[in-house]
C-alpha cells in the first residue's frame, strides 16, 4: 500500500538519547548516595566517636547480615515475588546448626548444615510458589510461621549455646585490619549479585518476568524455573546470614532475628526497587544498606533506644515512596 512506501524503509534509530553517565547522574541511586554522605557528615559532627574505624567496623554488623539477604530479596522482588519468611529461615537454620552442634558436629559440618537448611527452606517456598502457582505473599506468611514454629518446637523457651571457638570467625572474625568477615561477605556478594542481575541473561530474564511474566513465558523464558531459583537463592542467603548471626551471637534462640524481614524489605525498597516488581538495582540496595546502617549507628551513638530507631526505619520506608509521589502531586 502506498502510505508507507513513500518513505524509505529502514530509518536509523539511535541506540541511546541520553548517555549512560547522564542517566546515572539523575538516578535514585545518586540521590540516595547523597543522603548517605550527608548522614555520614552529620554523624561525624554529632559524635566524636563516630569516625573511629573500629567503631565503624563494629557498627557494620547492624546491616551486613540483613544486606546479604536483601541482595537476593531485591532480585526476588524485581521478579514480582516476595519472601516474608527470611527471618524464620534464619531461626530454623540456626536451630538446625544448634542440633548438629549438640550432636557433636565439627565446624565445617555446621556450616554445611546451615547452607543446606537455607536451601531446603528456599526450595520449599519456591516449590509452593513457582511449582504450584500459589501467591508468594501468603505462602511465605505461612512458612514464616512454620519455619519459626519448628524452632519453637525444638527449643521451646530454651537455647543452644556453646558453639565451637572456630565457628566464631564468621560473625566475629576479621579478614584484614578493621574489615570483618561479614563486611567482606557483604562486599563479595554485592559484586556477585550486581553482576548476576545486571550483566547476565539470567538477570535480564528477572526484569522481563517482573514487568510481564506472561510475555516473558511467550518469549521462551522458563519463568517458573527462574522464580524457583530466586527463592532458592533467597533461602541460601538467609542460611548464610544465619551462620553469621549465630556465630556472632554465639547462641540460638527461637526468637532469633525477629523482624528481620521488615528491615530487609525496607532496605530493598529504600534502594529503589519497585515493590510491584520490574525495576531496581543492586547498587541501590548497597547504598540503602549503608544509609540504614549509618542511621542506626548514628542514633545509637546519641543513645536513642532501639524501638525509636524502628520508628525511623518504618517512617523511612513509607517516606521514600511517599515523598516523590507527594512532590509530583504538588507540582501538578
Amino acid at each position: 500500500m502506498s502510505v508507507t512506501s513513500e518513505e524509505p524503509r529502514g530509518r536509523q534509530i539511535p541506540d541511546r538519547l541520553t548517555s549512560p553517565l547522564r542517566k546515572a547522574l539523575s538516578s535514585w541511586e545518586l540521590l540516595l548516595f547523597g543522603v548517605a554522605v550527608a548522614i555520614f557528615i552529620a554523624n561525624s559532627f554529632a559524635s566524636p566517636w563516630f569516625l573511629d574505624p573500629w567503631n565503624l567496623s563494629d557498627a557494620s554488623f547492624n546491616f551486613t547480615e540483613k544486606a546479604l539477604i536483601a541482595f537476593a530479596m531485591a532480585m526476588l522482588i524485581i521478579a514480582g515475588d516476595i519472601d516474608l519468611s527470611v527471618a524464620s529461615i534464619i531461626a530454623l537454620t540456626s536451630t538446625m546448626m544448634g542440633l548438629a552442634m549438640m550432636a557433636g558436629a565439627p565446624m565445617p559440618v555446621l556450616v554445611l548444615v546451615g547452607l543446606v537448611t537455607g536451601l531446603v527452606c528456599g526450595a520449599f517456598n519456591g516449590l509452593l510458589v513457582a511449582g504450584f502457582g500459589l501467591p508468594s505473599i501468603v505462602v511465605t506468611i505461612g512458612t514464616m510461621s512454620l519455619f519459626r514454629g519448628i524452632s519453637y518446637i525444638v527449643l521451646g523457651d530454651g537455647a543452644f549455646t556453646g558453639y565451637p571457638a572456630s565457628f566464631a570467625y564468621f560473625g566475629q572474625g576479621y579478614v584484614w585490619w578493621v574489615i570483618t568477615f561479614e563486611l567482606f561477605l557483604f562486599a563479595l556478594f554485592a559484586v556477585i549479585f550486581g553482576v548476576l542481575l545486571h550483566k547476565t541473561s539470567f538477570g535480564r530474564a528477572v526484569y522481563a518476568i517482573g514487568n510481564n511474566a506472561t510475555a516473558a513465558r511467550f518469549s521462551g523464558i522458563r519463568v517458573n524455573r527462574i522464580r524457583f531459583i530466586l527463592f532458592l537463592q533467597t533461602g541460601l542467603m538467609s542460611g548464610i546470614a544465619a551462620i553469621c548471626l549465630t556465630s556472632r551471637l554465639g547462641s540460638t534462640r527461637p526468637s532469633i532475628a525477629t523482624g528481620f524481614e521488615l528491615e530487609v524489605v525496607t532496605m530493598v525498597v529504600l534502594g529503589g526497587v519497585s515493590i510491584l516488581g520490574g525495576s531496581g538495582s543492586i547498587p541501590g540496595v548497597v547504598i540503602a544498606a549503608l544509609v540504614m546502617g549509618l542511621v542506626t549507628f548514628g542514633l545509637g551513638l546519641l543513645n536513642v533506644p532501639g524501638i525509636v530507631m524502628s520508628i525511623i526505619i518504618g517512617a523511612l520506608l513509607i517516606g521514600v515512596i511517599a515523598l516523590p509521589r507527594l512532590w509530583s502531586m504538588w507540582r501538578r
Binding site: 524503509r9 529502514g10 530509518r11 536509523q12 534509530i13 539511535p14 541506540d15 541511546r16 538519547l17
Partner: peptide, 11 residues
C-alpha cells in the same frame, strides 16, 4: 530498521 519502526531511541 527492517520493520520501519518509529521510535526516539532503542533504549
Amino acid at each position: 530498521q527492517r520493520l520501519d519502526l518509529r521510535a526516539a531511541s532503542l533504549d
